[in-house]
Design a protein around this nucleic acid. Structure first.
Lengths: 222, 222
DNA sequence: GTCTATAGACCGATAGAC
DNA sequence: GTCTATCGGTCTATAGAC
């Protein structure tokens, strides 16, 4: 009891300078731990997928108690959703950092290259497409949906500009192009090629970009 | 004892006509049930994936007791492996049925079309790439590996012929082409496009084939 | 009587939740 | 640290075909 009062008094005495710094510090600590959790979840999701990732693992990886995890996130699904929100935010930041005056086709290739590198770095979370509880959690996550819409709008604009500029096939529906690009985020050809041991990561990325945009057919216009 | 002798005598008497028919019938029943099991596993693997598929579900789907399942297959992993063997055999049968004198590029497109249709029909099993016990079970399955090698040899021969004929980009390593085609078997763009509700299954297949072989870029040679 | 398949209880381990 | 649910896998007793 007495120690509580003492410390509170001390805090009051330093209120003018340290109190705001203290709550900020406290919030920083909270945010830092939350960030550490989300990073661990992100890595584990990329490494073993949602089903094989256990909450105990996450807690052990972060170095906190499992109970502390549930103070931040109410369920395993919300953990995964937080990781997805982070990825979407990273993607937004990457897109915003691209030179605005570049060719739209180059913007698109840069975006795909970023996704492929993320996957090769083991930081692309892989979620099962069929888990319904996870789906509802994601659909109800406004931050995730909003970010996804913003990204899609940006990429969609580039696609239409590239088609008008004649660098992307204009007869392909933009939504097909968009989904084809998105699908590169979980393209299994990356792990196939890496498992073959024949190519470096950089070569793999360039090969996939090439097959994605140029296709497999021989081209007379090259 | 006496009844045993009696029945054996009776069986011996009918050996010429009924004994072979009897064991054949019994074997047929066994094979038919095994086939029903593998089909159910195949469908469930495609529908929910390995992790979310439960053995009880399989038994219920087939309409037999779980214990009877374990009379046929010693583990859940072996169930999945049996489904993969079936798919590989189906693929071999499909490849063997293709006209041998067709253009190699058309053979390849037919193969991809077959994989895409299998996926859209909900009959392409999806296994987690990370489950180690499943991997070892598959690697130790001779029927699976042999079938996969035979398929790869066949497709690889077509790829090289198509490259020599100038219908496939000869500067792409054949293994890259092979893996790019294989990866279409679990291309998430199919479910994306289907979820959009904008296209029929036939249109989706043709769109994916087109983006796969022609790429996204505009082409001057069309 | 013997063999086989079935139904369903049951066990141990594990994971999510609190 | 505990509770509960689930799942892979096993076991036993019963029924029926031959």
């Amino acid at each position: 009891m007495s120690t509580t009062i003492t410390s509170r008094t001390k805090a009051s005495a330093e209120q003018a300078t340290e109190r705001p710094a203290k709550v900020s510090f406290k919030a920083q600590m909270l945010a830092a731990r939350e960030d550490a959790i989300v990073r661990a979840v992100n890595r584990l999701l990329a490494e073993k997928g949602f089903d094989l990732m256990t909450v105990d693992e996450v807690a052990a990886d972060v170095g906190i108690a499992k109970a502390s995890l549930y103070k931040h996130f109410p369920s395993k699904e919300d953990l995964a959703a937080a990781a997805m929100v982070r990825v979407v935010e990273l993607a937004q930041a990457f897109l915003a950092g691209l030179p605005a005056d570049a060719e739209p086709l180059q913007q698109l290739k840069a975006m795909v290259r970023w996704m492929l590198n993320l996957q090769l770095a083991g930081e692309m979370p892989s979620l099962p497409h069929q888990n319904s509880s996870l789906r509802t959690t994601l659909v109800n996550n406004k931050a995730y949906l909003d970010g996804l819409v913003r990204i899609s709008d940006q990429i969609g604009a580039w696609i239409e500009r590239a088609q008008k500029a004649g660098s992307l096939d204009p007869s392909l529906p933009p939504i097909v192009v968009l989904y084809t690009l998105y699908a590169r985020a979980c393209d299994s050809v990356l792990e196939f090629l890496r498992a073959s041991g024949l190519y470096s990561d950089e070569e793999i990325v360039e090969l996939v970009i090439r097959t994605c945009f140029d296709g497999l057919n021989a081209r007379q216009d090259r």
